[in-house]
Design a protein around this nucleic acid. Structure first.
Length: 674
DNA sequence: ATAGGGTTAG
C-alpha cells in the first residue's frame, strides 16, 4: 500500500481523508454559508443583507464573521463600493462594543487613515489601549499614515513614531518604515526622512518611490534624479514621479522627453504630466496634455479631475470647468471630497462664486479643505460677511480650522475692510486654536491695516513680527504707502524690496505710480531709468476672455487678434458713449509707460478694455462678460468698466491679480476699495 | 490586511 502524502504540499491524486469532524453545532453550517457569501459579496447592499442574517441568527458574537464583514465594509474604496460604507462599518463596530479584536481595530484605523481622518484614527487607538489591547505592526503602519497628511509633521506624528519604538516595533519592518518616510517627507522633514531611508536594510519599490517623491515634491529634482538613477528596480510609478517633478520645476522639455520615452503610459502617467504643468502654473500646457490624453483614448479618473480643475482655475476657463463638472457628475466622481474641493476652487476663481457655494452646500461630506476653499473663495469676491458666517458655522460643527483657514478668513476681512474682525481672528488663531501665525497671516493683517490707511500700525506689526519681512509683506506695506501717499516710507520699503527681489518689475511700477499720481514726474523718470539700466522690463498687462470654449488673450494695444478691426471700432464706440456720459480719463499713470510705442497709446487700449470690447461683441448677451487679468486692474479701467456696465446694461466680472470685481449698474462689488 | 497620484494660500 502506497504511503500517504506526508505534507499537504505534495498533494497527489489520492482521495483526501475526511479531516473535518462533523460539527454538531447547528450554527456551523450557517456560519460557513455566510462566510462564503461574504467572500462573494460585491456591494454594500449585499453586505447589509448578510449583516441582517447574522443578527437574525444571533451570530453577532462570531468574531470571524464580524471581522470579515467589518473588513469588507471598511475597505478603502479602490473598489466599486459606495462611500457610505465606512458609516456602516462604524455601526457594526459600535455594536461589537468592547469585544472588538486587534484586527477589527486595525481595520477601522486603516479606513480612517485612508480618509486622512487623523482625529478618528487616534481616538480609536486610545480606545483600544483603554481596553487593554496591545497594538501591533499593522496598527502603527496605519496610525502613521493617519498622521501623514498634516501640512507639517506635528508632534503627533513624532509621538506615534515614539510609541512604535516603545511597543517594540522592529525598525526592520519595511511597512512601518515606509509609512514613516512618507510622513516625514510630506511634513517637510526631508532630512529625517532621508535618515530613516538610509537606515533601512530592506527597501521595497514603495520605499524608494516615497523618498524620490519626497524630494520631487519640494522641487529638489536633482536629488530625486540621483535616487531614481540608483534605484535597482524602477517601476512605473518611479517614472511618473520624475515626469511630474521635471514638469513642476519648469523643465517641461525633459518631462515630455521622459514621458514620450516611457514604454507604457498608463492613466497615472498622464495624470502626473498634467499635475506637473498645473503646479508650474502652465494651465495651457496642462490642458493640452489633458486633450492629448483623451485623443489617446485614456479615460480620465478622479485624479485627472483634481489635476485638470486647477488648470481651469488658473486660466479662468469657466466653460471648460463646467464641462469637467458635467463629466464628474456623469461618472459619479462627485462623491469624492477632493474632486468637489477642486470644483469649489474652480468656480470661485472663474467668477461663479454662487456655483461654488452650491457645490459646497451639496457635499454630503466635507474636509477642512472644503471649508478653507469656500472661505478663500468668498474672500476674493469681497463677500467678507458670508466668509465670517461660514467660519462660525464651521466652529459650531466642530470642524477644527487650520492655518489656511485663517489665511482665507483674514483675507476676507481685508477685502471687505473689517479691521476689528481681522484682529479678533488673528488673536483667536493662537489663543483658541494654538496655531502660531506664519508670515502669511502677518501679511494679511498688514494688508488690512494698509487698506484702512493705518500705516503706523502696519509698520509696528512688521517690526514686532518674529521673522524678517519677506517680499510679500513689504509689497503690502508698499501698497499701503501708495494709498497714504507716504513717499518717504515708500522709498525705504522699495529699497528693501529691490534688495530682496532686484529683478521683479512690479515694485518699481508701484513706486512709480505713486510718484505719478502726485505729479513727481522727475522721480517717475528716475525709476524708469533705473529699470532701464538694470535691464528690467515691465510685465505687459494681459487680459483674457473665454468665448465658445476658446480663450482669447489681449495685451495692451494688441492688434494680432483676427477681429482686431471690429474690436477697435467697438472701442471707439465705447469711448464716445463714455465721453457723452461725462467720463474723464484718469491719465495720472499714463506717463509711466516705458517705451515710445507704449507712450503713444492711450488708456483706452488697456488689455482689460480690449477684452471687454470683444466680450460685448462676441459673448452671449445672456451671460455676464468674464475677464481675467494678470495684473491689478488700473484705476482708469475700473472707473470706465463701471460706466460700461451701466451704459450697455451688462454684468462684467473681472478677475485681477488679487480679487474679483463684479461690475453691475455702474457700481463695483469692491466698493472702489482694492 | 501593510504604499501609491490629487484638492486650499498676499
Amino acid at each position: 500500500m502506497a504511503a500517504l502524502p506526508s505534507s499537504p504540499l505534495s498533494v497527489q491524486n489520492t482521495p483526501k481523508p475526511p479531516l473535518n469532524i462533523p460539527n454538531q453545532d447547528p450554527n456551523h453550517q450557517r456560519i460557513q454559508t455566510l462566510l462564503t457569501s461574504l467572500q462573494n459579496c460585491t456591494s454594500i447592499k449585499q453586505a447589509k443583507e448578510i449583516h441582517a442574517s447574522i443578527l437574525r441568527n444571533g451570530l453577532q458574537h462570531q468574531q470571524d464573521l464580524c471581522a470579515k464583514l467589518l473588513a469588507f465594509c471598511a475597505e478603502p474604496p479602490s473598489s466599486q463600493l459606495a462611500s457610505n460604507s465606512l458609516i456602516y462599518a462604524t455601526r457594526i463596530f459600535e455594536q461589537l462594543q468592547d469585544t472588538a479584536t486587534i484586527f477589527m481595530y486595525n481595520t477601522m484605523i486603516r479606513s480612517h487613515a485612508h480618509r486622512r481622518d487623523t482625529a478618528q484614527a487616534i481616538s480609536l487607538y486610545n480606545r483600544m489601549r483603554h481596553n487593554g489591547i496591545l497594538p501591533n505592526n499593522y496598527t502603527f503602519t496605519f496610525l502613521v499614515k493617519a498622521a501623514t497628511d498634516l501640512s507639517t509633521t506635528t508632534g503627533l506624528g513624532r509621538a506615534i513614531h515614539a510609541q512604535s519604538v516603545i511597543f517594540g516595533m522592529p525598525n526592520s519592518d519595511v511597512y512601518i518604515q515606509t509609512a514613516l518616510l512618507n510622513m516625514y517627507t510630506s511634513g517637510g522633514n526631508i532630512a529625517i526622512a532621508r535618515n530613516v531611508f538610509d537606515r533601512m536594510r530592506h527597501r521595497t519599490a514603495a520605499t524608494w518611490n516615497a523618498m524620490i517623491a519626497g524630494y520631487s515634491k519640494r522641487g529638489d529634482v536633482e536629488n530625486a534624479r540621483r535616487l531614481f538613477d540608483a534605484m535597482p528596480d524602477k517601476d512605473e510609478q518611479s517614472w511618473n514621479i520624475m515626469v511630474c517633478g521635471y514638469a513642476k520645476i519648469g523643465e517641461g522639455d525633459i518631462a515630455e522627453r521622459l514621458f514620450e520615452g516611457m514604454p507604457t503610459k498608463t492613466r497615472p502617467t498622464w495624470n502626473a504630466m498634467i499635475a506637473g504643468y498645473a503646479q508650474d502654473s502652465k494651465p495651457v500646457e496642462a490642458l493640452g496634455v489633458f486633450r492629448r490624453m483623451q485623443v489617446a483614448g485614456v479615460r480620465p479618473d478622479e485624479i485627472t479631475m483634481v489635476t485638470v480643475l486647477p488648470a481651469c482655475s488658473q486660466l479662468g476657463a469657466l466653460e471648460l470647468g463646467e464641462w469637467v463638472h458635467v463629466y464628474i457628475d456623469k461618472n459619479g466622481f462627485d462623491s469624492n471630497v477632493a474632486v468637489c474641493n477642486a470644483l469649489i476652487d474652480m468656480y470661485a476663481k472663474c467668477g461663479s462664486i454662487d456655483k461654488a457655494i452650491t457645490v459646497f452646500n451639496e457635499m454630503t461630506e466635507r474636509s477642512v479643505v472644503s471649508w478653507n476653499t469656500i472661505i478663500s473663495g468668498l474672500a476674493i469676491h469681497g463677500r467678507g460677511k458670508e466668509a465670517i458666517e461660514l467660519f462660525a458655522e464651521m466652529e459650531k460643527k466642530g470642524v477644527v480650522p487650520d492655518d489656511l483657514t485663517f489665511v482665507g478668513l483674514l483675507n476676507a476681512c481685508g477685502h471687505a475692510g473689517f479691521i476689528d474682525r481681522a484682529n479678533v481672528y488673528f488673536r483667536k488663531m493662537r489663543e483658541v486654536y494654538g496655531i502660531p501665525p506664519k508670515m502669511e497671516h502677518y501679511g494679511c493683517l498688514v494688508d488690512v491695516l494698509g487698506r484702512a490707511r493705518h500705516l503706523n500700525e502696519a509698520q509696528e506689526l512688521i517690526n514686532c513680527m518674529p521673522f524678517e519681512p519677506n517680499s510679500v509683506i513689504l509689497g503690502s506695506l508698499l501698497s499701503a504707502c501708495r494709498m497714504c501717499n507716504d513717499y518717504m516710507l515708500g522709498e525705504r520699503v522699495l529699497k528693501k524690496l529691490v534688495e530682496l527681489e532686484p529683478l521683479n518689475p512690479g515694485y518699481y511700477v508701484l513706486l512709480s505710480n505713486m510718484y505719478a499720481s502726485s505729479g513727481r514726474w522727475k522721480d517717475v523718470i528716475g525709476i524708469r531709468n533705473l529699470m532701464k539700466s538694470r535691464g528690467i522690463e515691465k510685465i505687459p498687462g494681459c487680459s483674457s476672455i473665454e468665448v465658445d470654449n476658446m480663450v482669447h488673450e489681449f495685451v495692451v494695444g494688441g492688434k494680432t487678434h483676427p477681429h482686431t478691426q471690429e474690436i477697435y471700432a467697438k472701442l471707439d464706440e465705447i469711448s464716445e458713449k463714455l465721453r457723452s456720459a461725462g467720463y474723464i480719463p484718469d491719465t495720472s499713470i499714463v506717463l509711466f509707460d516705458l517705451d515710445e510705442e507704449e507712450k503713444a497709446q492711450n488708456l483706452s487700449l488697456h488689455s482689460e478694455k480690449l477684452a471687454v470690447a470683444f466680450g460685448l461683441l462676441k459673448a452671449s448677451p445672456a451671460k455676464p462678460i468674464r475677464v481675467v487679468k494678470n495684473l491689478r486692474v488700473c484705476r482708469d479701467c475700473h472707473a470706465a468698466i463701471k460706466l460700461i456696465s451701466e451704459i450697455y446694461d451688462r454684468e462684467i466680472i473681472v478677475r485681477d491679480r488679487n480679487r474679483f470685481h463684479h461690475f453691475k449698474d455702474g457700481a463695483c462689488s469692491c466698493n472702489d476699495y482694492w
